[in-house]
Design a protein around this nucleic acid. Structure first.
Lengths: 346, 346
DNA sequence: GTGAAAGCGCTAACAC
DNA sequence: GTGTTAGCGCTTTCAC
């Protein structure tokens, strides 16, 4: 790789001048500018981001930390955020947290040694001890949370309106005549999980329906957990539900897997709904009713928030709530036909 | 962040000595070593990988470039490779290529400015012009290919034994009595695609069955392409196939989506099989027959190959072929019941 | 066994 | 409008 020195030498100028045309940081004689440009092209010179980052103490890289790579939702989110971040001049790197117990803390430290400018921490699920550590780190490294832990202090974050989503889904199931609706919750203790559950519970209350503790199962957000939750409802639970609502799509998919294996018909015997609208919801049979998030807006908000925090470390921390939309499909409403693509290419 | 200077100062030694204990690069007095260690702990000092990389001209980072984030296969592969790379002391970054036409070339240039030590280029699908460029780059930056383009020259790569996989799958379908088996091919012109197709074709030949050109549809490896291919077979094709074999799982899933929408029963009316064994194959109904790849071995081979190339740039280029295993499920064999998990947690 | 100093590629004062 | 130089945080000669 050619360096700025090579360019300077070949163009017969100093490195400073080359740097100036590179960064447009001071006026340069049009003649010399052109010579330099030409040399740059000829040498295929590309400034080293590493050296630049070292000098400027910033890398123009941000990281997004997700709980696992298993959930397509996080991958899709990554894609959206990556796209938008690139528009803002940032590269994005993806970091999974599904290994050790303390791994997110280590990962953050590692990212710091690599000079990332900021971090998007997605549905953080660590323990209280770790969160203290992370809050501490966030004083030095800008962090924006997505679907965050319940913090004592205000913290920059964007969350999906889980209350609204689950209220809508529950209301939909009630309007279909369901009397006993089970709920596959996420891990308790998290604000996101709580908000979603509250949407479900309050909707029941508003319709004067009983809240059965038995009909809530605390699971761990993955397919297998959804499967187990569903087995619990259908095999161990006293009240047999006719509808199951899950705190995310892949748990709903797990639940549907159980139901199919045991020969239950969906939605006739049991209706199922999820949350996220991952592409899987249009791949399974029947297609899954779910709450769709406007990921383009989410991405924009998250990235802007982080960029602002990078540029003004003491900026006020605020939380943004984004509303989605209930998408009704065959897993709750038998009149809806499966449809893999909205528009069929002729 | 504390720097090496801070440590040296606090420990009353020179930065050189600190560096020595950091890297074990020369004997250091046990006494001073301990003092330095203690200071490091107290200051929570972490050496800057950026500065280190700049000095040593290597980053201990490698990148994996995948055609898109849509295919769960690539994400799973990423996870395996990331794990193994970490064991070898490397960080991995994920780069998607699904944007511009020339984007892979630009991405590689970008990665070079970030000092990545090597690249894993996965199922590269660019045109001949770009491949020339990339081969050129590979002289300066170690690249290992996965499921590669058909090169004129030898090149380090690991490929899955597509010939074997498709031969097995075809043989399986024939043994079930299918007389007309359609094939959803990948883009032609790629060695991987060709090998897989040959497996299918030669198996037919060996069973003295006709090769119908009409029953091969060239598609683009994504769900939608599988859907379209299937529509072509069922609506436009003169010979109506009773089985469809797809060059990867998500095209098979797309095909199944079409069949379900139109009311065909799988496998009774049409049997379907894929290639990859992504988790989706156990989520759809019926579960998909597919060719499973030993991703742990693949990851090990790819990473080792790249590490070797990084350490010895002029090492001999070689190709490794890895064999997988046909997994028979309900999409071809009606006697197999859907089963989301092999082992149910009690 | 240890320190001083050069240098990796770049940017940003500061001088002219 | 341009050049010289210091320095970002580290490793590595080369002295001592």
């Amino acid at each position: 790789m050619a360096t700025i020195k090579d360019v300077a030498l070949a163009a017969g100028v100093s490195v400073a001048t080359v740097s100036r045309v590179l960064n447009n940081t001071a006026p340069v004689n049009e003649q010399t500018r052109q010579t330099i440009q030409k040399v740059i092209e000829e040498l295929h010179y590309q400034p080293s981001m590493i050296a630049r980052g070292m000098r400027k103490q910033q890398s123009k890289v941000m990281a997004i930390m997700v709980p696992s790579y298993e959930n397509p939702y996080h991958i899709k989110l990554f894609k959206y955020i990556e796209d938008y971040a690139r528009q803002k001049g940032y590269r994005l790197i993806l970091v999974g947290m599904d290994e050790g117990d303390n791994s997110e803390h280590e990962s953050i430290m590692d990212l710091m040694t690599r000079n990332v400018d900021g971090i998007i921490l997605c549905t953080y699920r660590g323990n209280k001890y770790n969160i203290k550590n992370i809050m501490q780190l966030s004083k030095r490294l800008p962090i924006v949370f997505m679907d965050n832990f319940e913090f004592d202090e205000a913290i920059s974050s964007v969350v999906i309106d889980g209350y609204h989503g689950m209220w809508e889904a529950t209301n939909h199931l009630i309007s279909l005549g369901h009397k006993s609706i089970a709920y596959i919750d996420g891990n308790s203790g998290y604000k996101v999980a709580n908000e979603r559950r509250k949407g479900y519970q309050n909707c029941l209350k508003e319709h004067h329906m009983p809240l059965e503790a038995e009909l809530i199962y605390y699971a761990d957000y993955d397919i297998e957990a959804g499967y187990s939750a569903c087995r619990y409802f259908m095999e161990e639970c006293k009240i047999r539900p006719t509808a199951i609502l899950a705190a995310n799509d892949i748990m709903a998919v797990g639940a549907m897997g159980y139901l199919r294996e045991k020969g239950y018909r969906i939605p006739k015997d049991v209706a199922v709904a999820g949350f996220d609208d991952i592409y899987l919801s249009k791949v399974i049979t029947p297609n899954l009713t779910t709450y769709r998030q406007p990921l383009n807006i989410v991405a924009e908000q998250v990235v802007n928030m982080l960029v602002n925090k990078i540029n003004a470390p003491n900026i006020e921390e605020k939380q943004v709530v984004i509303e989605g939309k209930l998408i009704i499909r065959g897993s709750t409403d038998a009149t809806k036909k499966d449809k893999m693509f909205e528009v069929i290419v002729k």
